[in-house]
Structure formats: structure tokens, C-alpha cells
Design a protein around this nucleic acid. Sequence first.
RNA 1: CGGGGUGUAGCUCAGCUUGGUAGAGCGCUUGCUUCGGGAGCAAGAGGCCGCAGGUUCAAAUCCUGUCACCCCGACCA
Length: 527
Amino acid sequence: MSTEKNAPKQTAPAAQTAITPTRAQDYPEWYQQVVRAADLAETSDVRGCMVIKPWGYALWENIQRSLDKMFKDTGHKNAYFPLFIPLSYFEKEAEHVEGFAKECAVVTHHRLKPGVKADGKQGLVPDGELQEPLVVRPTSETIIGASFAKWVQSYRDLPLLINQWANVVRWEMRTRLFLRTAEFLWQEGHTAHATSEEAMEETLKMLEVYADFAENWMAMPVVKGEKTEGERFPGAVNTYCIEAMMQDRKALQAGTSHFLGQNFAHASEIKFSDADGKVSYAWTTSWGVSTRLIGGMIMTHADDDGMVLPPRLAPSHIVIIPVTHKPETAQAVLDYCNKLAADLRKIPYFGRTVEVEVDNRDIRGGDKTWQWIKKGIPVRVEVGPRDMEQDSVFMARRDRGHKEKTSVKRDEFVATIYSVLEDIQGTLFARAKAHREQNTQRIDSRAEFEAFFGARNEAEANESGGGAVKGGFALVHYAPDRKVEEELKAKFAVTCRCIPLEGADEPGTCIFTGKPTTRRAIFSKAY
RNA sequence: CGGGGUGUAGCUCAGCUUGGUAGAGCGCUUGCUUCGGGAGCAAGAGGCCGCAGGUUCAAAUCCUGUCACCCCGACCA
């Protein structure tokens, strides 16, 4: 980051924050600092790849657990397919190849031998060239399609509802922790159906599951919508998505669900005999969400003091910090804290029990407090000799100011912790939703549209940062047109995020072409 | 792939223009004091200055090459 750049702002007296710079000063840098301060992940020596640290991985495990149950509840089974895809499989679907060709890692050799490397030094060099190169999966439609072709013979084998938890590799030019990394973790659902209607129903059902998860677990409000042609998944007939607004008012595509028609069934020969003995190609879908969701959670909830975790997914809910600087009471306080933790851990909370840390590390209390604030733990509790005497605890919530602490009777704390966590969860969602609504505008002319996004460009250009910055979600009448989208992207860095599914039809005219339309679309800058 | 920048202690960086074989802050270790709170003082550990050549009595510093990373662009279901 550039300290010179931020220096003028520091002339105004500002409250000290745990994260520097603040969101208003330099949002992208703030994001990186939050990831680091919260100990979620770090960059690795491998280009574009991240190391997910225990606190971040625990968050991913909670995402997995919750989503996995939702998938199972809707009839899906987990399976696992190879990391390597023969190049010839990949070539079967023309649009698909074209869409991914520029970002593929390719395995061409299968052993090493001593030799002279590219830099002229002695070392190990690849040897044993493969007859057919293997592509490290950027997505698995083709390799799973090959299995589906074997598994499906009759209409009685359908629907086939499969999910895979896996890593994938996309050789992106520019990467950012969680938001876009060369390797990332995700789940990919792949299903095959006898009819187009069933496949479409599945596509929308899973979109609904994603929206439910985003809003009710991540506390991240989303818009469900359909992508325009230009933003579609390569090879898909329709792509649906959930889009969320981040705190800098840019959109994040948080999940996608694709109706693939019979394109991949043709490519992979997924055929079946129907009840009349006629052979048909299956209708397939695919849908996925990734570790990008963690990036979305950060940019939705985190503040200038670091991460803020929604309780339903938080790796841990409560940290108890014993105040043990007086040796004569230290052990008693610690015992009291451990007993409190044990009682809290008996309370069920969204598929698990309340998880509690007793932080008895030998470091200063203030350090502990700030570390946990930065990690985003929902509730902090301090217990010292005086609290113990009164049988009470000193509680602070991450959704409120760090100085706002209240003394609560111990039994009341235990009795109300469930509703406190739920209250935090609700507050985070309400806050994010209000932010989105404040920054969503219905726009009815091209001039207004340009003012909405153009003003922001000027603000960015002169580095003024927060304050009067405009932009956000623009709800406009739009008749899909690739040329218009290309122009808007070039001029304003704005893309059509989706055409929202919800809400009544509203006839109008496209603000760019004047063609008649039936619904409004969302335009925004995006990650 | 085009333009710009940076590689010096675990982290953030200074030193380089005007060559003389290394510094600060934070972090870490130890001690004392302090502490219902992101402490103070003191001592200590830690780097062949990205890599390879070259110039020179002498290179973190100058020259050439190379690698890596970052930023802007292109690209990004």
C-alpha cells in the first residue's frame, strides 16, 4: 500500500482502527489486510495459489457441512471423479473448450530425470511425454459426462443427481485471496434428467438452495437472476446466478446454476431408452459454489477492525478471556471459565453445538481481545475475580463497538446465548440488506445511467476514495445485446449482472436500444 | 502478452544518485516494572542485501543478463 497516498486523510482526527487502511481509504488493500489479520489464509510460493489457514479452513468446513446437508436433503449423492481430464474429452464441447482453453494447466509428462533445466542449471527435467496431455480440471462436465454415459441406459436410471467436493485449477492472470485463485476448493453438482422440464426444475431448485444458504447462513442478501448470453457458462443454454453487493458497491457472483440442455449429453453420449424404447439424449445441469464465498463474507460483513463472522458459520462462537493476572485468584478464575465453557458447549446451535474458546495464552489481555476482534468471533467474554464474585461475565458483541461491553449474570448469559447469536446473525443480514437497498437505483435513461457510473470513475481517478462515490446496482430496462454489453464494459467497467427472477413483469423500453422489454436487468461493476 | 514498479532480518521498509562487505520500526527471546487490557525500560537472537556474470584494490550500491512477485491494461464459467 502507499502511505503517501493515504497521508492527507490522516490530518483529520480519526478513531484508531485495527485494520489499516480503512475501507474508505483503500478498499482492495483493506480486504487483503483483513484476510491476513483474521488469519484466514495467506499467499503461497506457488503462483496464484493460497494456503488456507486453520481459521479459514474451519469456516470452509462449516460451509461444506451446511451445504452438503442441503444437497443430500434434495436427493443428491456425493462422488469423486479424476483430477485429470484427457484433452480429447475436453475438446468434445466446442464452446466449452473455447471458454476455458486460455486458463488450463496441462500435464504433459509423467516422470523426471536429471538434466539441464531452462535456466542452464543441473537439476530434474520432465521426461516420459504422455501420448495424450491431461488437463487439470477447471470444471468437470466432460469427465463426469463420460461416467454418466456409462451409468445411464434407461429412463429408469434418471434422474442422476451427483455432487462432488473437489479442487479445481484455472490459470487466471490476476488472483486475489479467496476471490480468484489459480486453485480453489468448490463443490460441483452434476445431474442428468429425462426431460428438459425436469432439468430446468433442477437448475432453479439448486439456485434456490444457494440463495437460501447465502441469506440464511452467510447472512449475505442475494439477487437470483439469469445471465445474459455474454456472461453465460461456456456450453450452457442458460446460466442462473446469485449476485451479492459488497461494501464497495461492486457485485460478486456468489454461485451459479447452469441448464446445459443436451449440449454435454451430445458431447459425452449420455443416452437412454425411454418408456417407448426410443433412444434420447439426456438433459443435464451443473451448479457450483466455491471458496469465493469466504471472500464474499469478508466483503459483506467485515469492518475497519477486521473480520465479522456470521454466527451460523463461525468456526467458534465465543471466546472466554480469563483475567488471571493476580496469582492468588488465577486458578479459581480459570476453573470458573472452563466450567462456563463446558455449560455453553452443551447448547445446540444450527447443526452443531455452541463452540467456545478459553483463551488462556500467556499474552496480554488487550492483545488477546484485539486478535479475536480481528478474527471476527461473534461474542467475547471477559471473566475476572470481580465478575466471579458476582457470578457474572463481561460480554462484548462483534456486531457492536469494541468498547460496548455489558455485565451479564452468568446463568442469564448461558440462557440467552442462543438468542444473542441469532440476534447477531439477524443484524448482519439486515445491515447488508439495507446497504444493498440504499445503493440500488432504478434508472430510466442512458444519461442517468452514465451519471450513475461515470461519477464513480472520476472519483476513482482523482483518488478521493469514499465519501461522494456513486455507483451500485442500476436497475434498468435492457434488451440483451452483446454489442451494448461490450461497450458498457469498455467505457464504464460495468457488466450486466443478471436479469432478476423475482418481481412482476414491468413492460418498458431498453435505455440503450429503445427496444421493448418486459423486465429490468441489474448492471454493476463486479469482481 | 504490452506499460510501470519492487526484490535488503519473520513482517513493513530505509540505505543505492556521490562504491569502502548492513540499519530502523514492529514481531520474537529473557529480566524488571506495569496491567480489567492493543504497556514501559533494559538486554539478546536473527540477514553471505533474489540469482548469475561483469567493472573495481573494494559492489546492497555501478553495468549486463536472468528469475520471481506486485500494480495498470488485456484476460477472467
